[in-house]
């Protein structure tokens, strides 16, 4: 746990979980899409739905989708700014079941070239956890730089990726691969210490099994 997970984030009120965390989840979703979202469906679960209105949860998620940090004073005007930017955001109630964290959200984004879906929770103090990307389980906190790879499940895949990272002295903090079935589509999330140079992402992109890479920076405010 790092200092600025405890002191911080610097944020627009009123709630670290319902406002700042919600903004960060929107921000992550935009990064994962890798382009400007044009249409977004937001399903609010539990307390996000029940008490979100008084906490500016919808405004905060929209601000994140616009790429605003949680302390951006435009946060409360985000719905208007999104409309002006040509982004449609729909909100609705969603029940993710009794096991889900009370402050959870499902975000489906559509851009010019692709779609992405994620489920994430705001777990307290503005900290967040992304639990699912495109229906595959992940565990992304955004406190470290995270490489997210959409790829085919093939033998030796991870060995190849980690070999590249080892060559450039990038230390892997955590690594997790999820897939639906053997040989099918998979997602690997690799948290690393420090930054990932652009050339490294470009090099990894050449691996034939890889469909897409996103290098998720540390979330704003960490």
């Amino acid at each position: 746990m790092r200092i600025f997970e405890i002191i911080g984030p610097s944020m627009i009120g009123p709630s670290s979980s319902h406002t700042a965390g919600a903004c960060r989840l929107g921000w992550v979703a935009r990064e994962l899409l890798g382009e400007i979202p044009t249409e977004v469906i937001v399903g609010l679960h539990g307390s996000f739905w029940a008490t979100g209105d008084g906490h500016g949860t919808k405004e905060a998620i929209t601000a994140g989708l616009l790429g605003f940090a949680p302390d951006d004073e435009r946060l409360i005007q985000a719905p208007v700014l999104a409309r002006e930017a040509g982004m449609t955001v729909h909100f609705d109630f969603l029940d993710l079941g009794p096991q889900a964290h009370p402050n959870s959200v499902r975000l489906q984004l559509r851009g010019a070239n692709r779609e992405v879906a994620l489920i994430g929770s705001s777990v307290g103090g503005g900290n967040v956890c992304v639990q699912e990307i495109d229906e595959l389980p992940v565990d992304i906190r955004g406190t470290l730089v995270t490489l997210i790879l959409w790829h085919q499940d093939t033998p030796g895949f991870l060995a190849g990726i980690t070999a590249v990272l080892a060559c450039v002295q990038i230390n892997v903090a955590t690594i997790r691969t999820s897939r639906l079935q053997r040989g099918e589509e998979a997602i690997t999330a690799i948290e690393v210490d420090g930054a990932v140079p652009r050339e490294v992402s470009a090099l990894l992109q050449k691996a034939s099994a890889i469909e897409r890479i996103v290098c998720l920076s540390v979330l704003p405010g960490f």
Partner: peptide, 21 residues
């Protein structure tokens, strides 16, 4: 009060407890 008015605060450790430190 700043927090309730959608103003900028520093969560320490959370927004709801941001006044004490």
């Amino acid at each position: 009060e700043t927090n309730a008015a959608f103003g900028r605060i520093v969560a320490t450790p959370t927004a709801g407890s941001a006044g004490i430190c």
